[in-house]
């Protein structure tokens, strides 16, 4: 048992995983249910909420927009007993659905803030289904960054995207295709969406694939 273990054996486990293939079309709420079922199948000693419909206690770091794939997603769940980390990872991997790959599990301090609260920013890479001219793309990016206000309307609410763009640049993929890299703020009430940014650049969501490459925590 590790030195920071809870006296009653209660432990908080953080999972680092990738979400891709068909799972890119599984939204945030569905993903929560998917994880709950995955955890049930693993038969790990989960900690449940109280009430008529007890649910495994779990916590996803940051909603990934529908259609995106991700190299790094984070989830915390709680257990009533301590188990060795390799066993936990093995049991999760054995029951994971296609498209969900478990990279690592670690034990984290019980007193840490919820993952959503720790979120600072997300990094994304955008590839285009039809080849783009890199010079043209550079020009577009430059123009966008020169604006002080980028007004986005989503579900009848408007927000200014510009201050949420921490970084935005073009790059070249190994196959020479022009791609976009960006780092967007992802704090409670201040989360930038790559699809909103791309729409501003004139790309409909049927024109590209977004991959989240990293989550940045506090």
């Amino acid at each position: 048992m590790p030195v920071n273990a809870h006296p009653l054996g209660i432990s908080r486990i953080r999972v680092v995983y990738a979400k891709r293939d068909a799972l890119r079309f599984t939204g945030h709420l569905d993903l929560q249910r998917l994880w709950e079922r995955l955890l049930r199948r693993s038969k790990l000693p989960l900690r449940y909420t109280q009430g008529y419909h007890p649910r495994a206690r779990l916590n996803l770091a940051s909603a990934l927009p529908l259609g995106f794939i991700s190299d790094e997603e984070l989830l915390d769940f709680w257990m009533d007993e301590w188990l060795p980390l390799p066993e936990i990872q093995q049991r999760l991997t054995a029951v994971a659905p296609p498209g969900l790959e478990i990279y690592s599990v670690q034990q984290v301090d019980m007193g840490e803030n919820a993952l959503q609260v720790q979120m600072k920013a997300s990094e994304f890479v955008v590839s285009f289904y039809d080849p783009q001219d890199i010079l043209e793309l550079n020009h577009q990016v430059e123009q966008l960054l020169n604006q002080t206000t980028i007004t986005i309307t989503r579900r009848k609410k408007t927000y200014n995207l510009r201050p949420l763009i921490l970084d935005l640049e073009t790059a070249t993929a190994p196959d020479d295709a022009a791609i976009l890299r960006m780092r967007l703020k992802a704090e409670a009430g201040a989360t930038g969406r790559p699809d909103d940014l791309l729409e501003t650049l004139g790309y409909p969501n049927t024109a590209y694939l977004v991959r989240r490459t990293q989550l940045l925590l506090n």
Binding site: G27, G67, P97, P98, G99, P204, T206
Partner: peptide
Amino acid sequence: HLLPAVTKPGRYVGGELNQ
């Protein structure tokens, strides 16, 4: 490529556990 434009695209991709 056309799925992001339709409602609930997860209906059309398969890839479920036990498929």
